[in-house]
Amino acid sequence: MAKITFDGIEIEVPDGTTILNAARQIGGNIVPPAMCYYTPIKGTGGKCRACLVKVAAGSAKDPRPMPKLVPSCITTVQDGMVVENTVNQQVMDVRKGIVEMLLINHPLDCPVCDQAGECDLQNFAFEHGVATTRYEEERRTFEKIDIGPYIQLHMTRCILCYRCVYTADQLTERRVHGVLGRGDAAEIGTYIDNIIDQDFSGNVIDVCPVGALTDKTFRFKQRVWFTKPVNAHRNCENPKCSGNVVLWYKGKDVLRVTARKDEYGEVKEWICNTCRFEKKETSDWTIEGPSHIQRTSVISANHYELPVMNPQVIADLPESSVRDLENNPPLKLGR
């Protein structure tokens, strides 16, 4: 076990835990944002730099600070490590810069984008970005590509997190090969194209943090905030498919089927393409009840939940720092 201090809060986690996952165990709004890291998919993380934090002390043995900010998603904790996130101005400034970088070539076409309302980039920009832009240049664009009958790739919106590449690779057991070209001309390439007849290809839609990979059976059907998410399951014939899904209703119609995500937007149980694209009748499913609505979801129509800290961690905190946290939440939503 390793004991670390994150934004002044002490927590003990198993060795080998990443800083980000340690912070997630604390919960609340001290958790760094993650645009590329995805716990269930190996090899993700380290790319978007949204989760950069300051390591003010490396470990008990070597308490020197690390010279550069480190990606919290792939840096493992050391006993005695002191990490600064929301309490460190440099970290907050750099994060603002990362939002800006991710947005300069983004089309900002949220009004016509299916992902709007459940988009990690929107949330990230809302919490950490600024309302204006300094970018006057032409944005890079790509043609839309249909990859198979169910999925559309809108590369212009892509933030090159590589999540879909690794997902495709790991769920369908083929070699890494999914990005063509370099720099801001890099694009998700033909490999994705080829996995499209695979049973689990639809999961790339769920792992995509933005609206670059969208469900063609749901395209332009409805804004997500007008739909109602309901948990449901079925006994899927595919042994690798969990059959546990969310049905997105509008009135009596199931408009969309997705896998279930946790509060950090991560899918823990993959679903197959049959469940996702072909079972759109209520009679296909056993209904469990309404899904929990994510704190950032626009479905809650301005009744945003404040992020909640793990009660157990708060219980262990000294009285003074609890008061401190209540009076000065480290980060305010939508400053």
């Binding site: 990362i98 090159l160 590589y162 370099r182 801001d184 890099a186």
Partner: peptide, 9 residues
């Protein structure tokens, strides 16, 4: 190479 956002953009 286009991997990380600060350099790519």
């Amino acid at each position: 190479c286009g991997q990380c956002s600060p350099c790519r953009e």
